[in-house]
């Protein structure tokens, strides 16, 4: 049982996808203009991640290694489509607010990162808990960032006014530049207090498909990229 709880805490704290691994930056920056948006995006991603992790883990012995990427893409894209249809049917307002970022969950690094690094190698049960842990870690991170931006940018959290009437909202925080600024402050704090994070190269990288080198990563085909970049670097050194 401990192994399952370890998976949960791993996703929530030790390898938090947003704060430690710095994965899935596009949705993190784009949708966190309010706490509710963070909840919607986080839970949608969690559902996709858990479902994909379970399916890939169940099929891991039948998927040939050389063509695993297309398999993963089809499974993840199908899960995303299901989630999108469910949102359209039952939570149209969430679907409206998140718009194009719901189908873009397909290319969220967290999903492929976990499927490739964990689910493709581990049992169904463990992969299920890994997905839940990672998904909730992502959700909580999005809610924290969303609340922070909402407080400064609109004076509210989850739509409830928390700042005094005299507070003049700093609108920039709910606009695109504010997203970059909040992330800049976050990474600066991580540097200052030497917290483990992929951005200062101190995160545990062994469990990551991509090697965790976000500063030098430029795509989402993980291990292939990692090998390519490594060989490029060694070639450059030899020259």
């Amino acid at each position: 049982m401990n192994k399952y709880i370890e998976r949960l805490t791993n996703g929530l704290f030790k390898e938090n996808p947003t704060f430690v691994l710095m994965l899935g930056m596009c949705p993190t920056l784009a949708v966190t203009i309010s706490a509710w948006n963070g909840v919607g995006m986080g839970l949608s991603t969690t559902v996709v991640l858990v479902a994909s992790n379970v399916i890939i883990a169940a099929l891991r012995k039948f998927i040939p290694n050389t063509v695993r990427m297309p398999y993963f893409i089809v499974v993840v894209a199908s899960m995303v489509t299901i989630v999108q249809l469910l949102l359209q049917a039952y939570f149209p307002s969430v679907n409206e607010a998140l718009g194009i970022y719901i189908p873009l969950i397909v290319v969220n690094c967290i999903i492929f990162g976990r499927v490739e690094a964990y689910a493709a190698k581990n049992k169904v049960g463990l992969s299920l808990f890994d997905g839940i842990g990672m998904g909730l870690g992502f959700t909580i991170a999005l809610i924290l960032i969303g609340s922070f931006r909402e407080v400064l940018g609109a004076g509210t959290i989850f739509g409830f006014r928390v700042m005094p009437e005299s507070f003049e909202p700093i609108t920039m925080f709910v606009k695109p530049p504010g997203a970059f600024l909040v992330l800049a402050m976050l990474t600066a704090l991580q540097n200052k207090f030497k917290l483990p994070s992929a951005t200062n190269g101190s995160a545990k990288t062994s469990a990551l498909a991509c090697g965790g080198d976000c500063a030098n990563c430029s795509g989402e085909t993980y291990s292939a990229n990692h090998e390519k970049i490594n060989s490029e670097n060694t070639k450059r050194k030899e020259d």
């Binding site: 920039m172 606009k175 695109p176 530049p177 504010g178 997203a179 970059f180 600024l181 992330l183 800049a184 402050m185 990474t187 600066a188 540097n191 200052k192 951005t199 200062n200 500063a215």
Partner: peptide
């Protein structure tokens, strides 16, 4: 400044660029 080296300063640059593009 040491704290801002690497990622943070890049993101601050992006902030200023985003403001300009805004």
């Amino acid at each position: 400044p040491k704290t801002l080296k690497g990622f943070p300063i890049t993101l601050i640059t992006a902030t200023l660029m985003a403001m300009a593009f805004y």
